[in-house]
Design a protein around this nucleic acid. Structure first.
Lengths: 120, 120, 120, 120
DNA sequence: GTGGTCTAGACCACG
DNA sequence: GTGGTCTAGACCACA
């Protein structure tokens, strides 16, 4: 379900965060669907429960899921969360486009890169 | 010449690295031009010389810089370095475009974001 | 009759407690009126009976409720309970007003917030 | 400087959070001023460093301070943070006023409570 | 069983 | 020295 790369310099809790967020915003985890419990996911991924919990906590504070003590954690899947995610990606996208322009890449080349994926 | 933001979560050596690399690939520092010495730049920016040293070291190992022991460091305006930089930016750009597409953003909206900066 | 929000971070027994207490102090449940049984309310709300039990227990110990073994639970519309509730709310209200004052909000702005709801 | 009540049901990290936030928004900790290090505050309060760090992390994510790896943590003191705090207090204030009104307390009585502090 | 807090102690990157 | 991540294991309240 989720793959963690221990050689990735990014912290583990962040990898878990991203993976779960993607599952939620993409709809693989339907709104209201129950996520694996902290302990369960921890033992599945062979990761300390505290690390998983941190990912869950941040997902909750960002509105991607909802933890109910004693019951479990549930995907939020709110449209607000989804559009917030889009917005964040677009911001990074524009910043990168700015850098590319500064590096001398024309808008046409960027558009070609988007369309074709031919990165020559 | 360079501005360091202590509030930026990125490590300082990385900020210095980016700033100098941008000056080099943009041509502000002409090929072969001498850069300030490590100690000089360190005192100018009020930063630990070790930090500057690391930025210089990585710039050299990435081919943006050429250090001559006893003489100083010189900008290497090689086209290879410049195009490598562009290549790296374009790769990240395409990856982001892929993510945006997965998030339901159309190519047209991305192009509009690049062009107008109107992030609707 | 009662609405439980599973997204609410507050424990469920507390939500039930508050909801019933409000019904009692507002007079919707007249003094002496019989409340639904624990099991009945639990099945209505699809909640564990233990959770309802706890809410009832605390309501009784706070004087809002009167349980008669074998007969049921009855609203205790005593003025004492009502004014105790008001007293508790007023205490929290004054404490908050104190904090607001410390944060630089004038009494006039607080009064305006109470009256108009315009939170400028 | 800070007092922690171990008998308080609220989590310790939250008590630390509130205490530091108050010091910052009240200006006791001037903008840019260095806060005690995580380890230092932890040993001063006889609390585990992880607990302090969580408070610091949340303060940073809420914009009240700025942590620089290797250098320390610094009060932000931005006006934005201060007004965000006021806004949050005012929201709770209005919600409480609503509850009081539902409990049968007149606006005049609330205003009297604010002004005089006579909670009779 | 669940989520949540806390501790103790280790390790890392940064300056 | 600093902040940051991670682990291991304990305890609590809630359902």
């Amino acid at each position: 379900m989720i793959h963690i790369d221990f050689r990735d310099p990014r912290p583990i809790y962040e990898q878990v965060y991203d993976a779960l967020r993607n599952l939620i915003v993409s709809g693989v985890l339907a709104p209201g669907e129950k996520l694996p419990s902290v302990r369960e996911l921890a033992s599945t991924l062979a990761i300390n429960p505290n690390t998983i919990q941190r990912a869950y906590r941040e997902l909750e504070s960002d509105g991607y899921l909802c933890s109910v003590p004693g019951k479990g954690s549930f995907a939020s899947g709110s449209d607000a969360a989804r559009s917030a995610h889009r917005r964040e990606l677009l911001d990074r996208f524009c910043a990168l486009a700015e850098e590319l322009r500064a590096a001398g890449v024309s808008d046409e080349n960027m558009i070609r890169a988007i369309r074709g994926g031919e990165r020559t």
